[in-house]
Nucleic acid binder design. Sequence first.
DNA 1: CTGTATCCGAAGTGATACTG
DNA 2: CAGTATCACTTCGGATACAG
Lengths: 138, 138
Amino acid sequence: MATGNTGVRAGLGGHRLPQPVPAGEYENCPVTDVLRRVSDKWTLLLLTLLDRRPHRFNELHRAVDGISQRMLTRSLRTLESDGLVEREVFPTSPPSVEYRLTPLGVSLLEPLSALAGWAVGHHPEIAAARRRSARERV
Amino acid sequence: MATGNTGVRAGLGGHRLPQPVPAGEYENCPVTDVLRRVSDKWTLLLLTLLDRRPHRFNELHRAVDGISQRMLTRSLRTLESDGLVEREVFPTSPPSVEYRLTPLGVSLLEPLSALAGWAVGHHPEIAAARRRSARERV
DNA sequence: CTGTATCCGAAGTGATACTG
DNA sequence: CAGTATCACTTCGGATACAG
């Protein structure tokens, strides 16, 4: 009702899919949307840092080590426009900007942590499966 | 001990990060790794279909509607090499191949469903935040 | 300090044709 | 039926330079 991809929602909720999943709904699926946002190269790490406490821009830049200014800005802007992170500008000189999680961002970290726990716990099994398939491909 | 990115793991687990997160660990982070696999265009949908029951190749091709043979094969092969999906070939004529979730794949769907639930539940808030930021960018 | 602008190579995805 | 091979297009991400 409120949103797209009833199919996937129903599927992951344990219900049925109306047989052929209609095209064009994958793009609008809120689940895939969230997954894609969170699975890019830096977002997860930024979220975990901001979960500990608010950070200033350069603080994040130093903490992450390897991220470019461009990607740091882009990632933070995306998080902000999704309502997961809040940006506060202090008109000092030189200017300083603080980023913090919104309540929405905090709430996301719960299910995300559960998935992270799964990933850490089952990483050895995945790695083993990859080694197996690598051996077969010889 | 067994694997990389202690930083993110600790962060999502609620512990501390050793201040500057060492570079090169993001690539090897099992959490981001899993997220990236699952957040590509078709994988989530394939997992939900296979969660209902095993499917043959063309059955999936018909069910998904919009996926190319290339991407269907690629997605299934990746899922297989990660040990999330099992592929069984029946030497009939013409040949038929069946795909099913492995126990590992089934276990992934639990935390993934939790995250999916969050996404569906909070999608309106995210959409509202995006509209807000779109209005500001005018 | 906190960004923006530009360019470039790499990776994801689709279209189409061909095969055992 | 269940794929593989090739090409083209788009998006992601890094490097570098510049700016309020």
